Computed example of a mutant assay.
Amino acid sequence: MALTVPPPRSPLDGGPALARWYEHELGWATSAGPPVQLVTGLRFDVLELPATAGRRVLRRLGTEVGPVALMGRRMRLLVAAGAAEELPGLLDWLEWGGISLDLAMLGADGRMTAPVPPGWRPTGRSPSGTPGASVWLRAPEPGREVESRLPALRPSRGGADAPCLARLVAAAAAECHRARLLSAARVHRPEPAAGAAAQQRPTAQRFASS
Rank of each mutant, 00 (worst) to 15 (best):
S10P: 12
S10Y: 11
L12D: 01
G14F: 05
P16F: 04
P16K: 05
L18F: 06
L18I: 02
L18A: 01
A19N: 05
A19H: 01
A19V: 01
R20K: 03
W21H: 07
Y22P: 05
E23P: 11
E23M: 04
E25L: 06
E25F: 14
L26Q: 03
L26I: 02
G27M: 07
G27A: 09
G27R: 08
G27C: 08
W28L: 06
A29N: 14
T30R: 00
T30L: 06
A32F: 11
G33L: 09
G33H: 06
P34C: 12
P35F: 08
P35D: 09
V36W: 01
Q37A: 15
L38N: 01
V39K: 11
V39R: 15
T40M: 02
T40Y: 04
G41S: 08
G41A: 00
R43I: 03
R43Y: 13
R43V: 00
R43W: 14
F44Q: 05
F44I: 00
D45M: 03
D45S: 02
V46N: 00
V46G: 04
V46Q: 02
L47P: 07
L49R: 04
L49G: 08
L49S: 02
L49K: 04
P50K: 04
A51V: 14
A51K: 06
A51G: 12
T52G: 13
T52R: 13
T52A: 13
T52Y: 12
A53Q: 07
A53M: 01
A53Y: 08
A53D: 07
G54H: 04
R55L: 00
R55I: 13
R56P: 04
R56N: 10
V57R: 05
V57N: 07
V57E: 06
V57H: 01
V57F: 10
L58M: 09
L58R: 03
L58T: 15
R59Q: 12
R59D: 11
R59V: 14
L61H: 08
L61T: 06
G62Q: 01
T63F: 12
T63Q: 15
E64S: 15
E64Y: 04
G66I: 11
P67T: 09
P67R: 05
V68W: 02
V68F: 08
V68C: 02
V68N: 06
V68T: 00
A69E: 00
M71A: 15
M71Q: 15
G72V: 12
R73D: 10
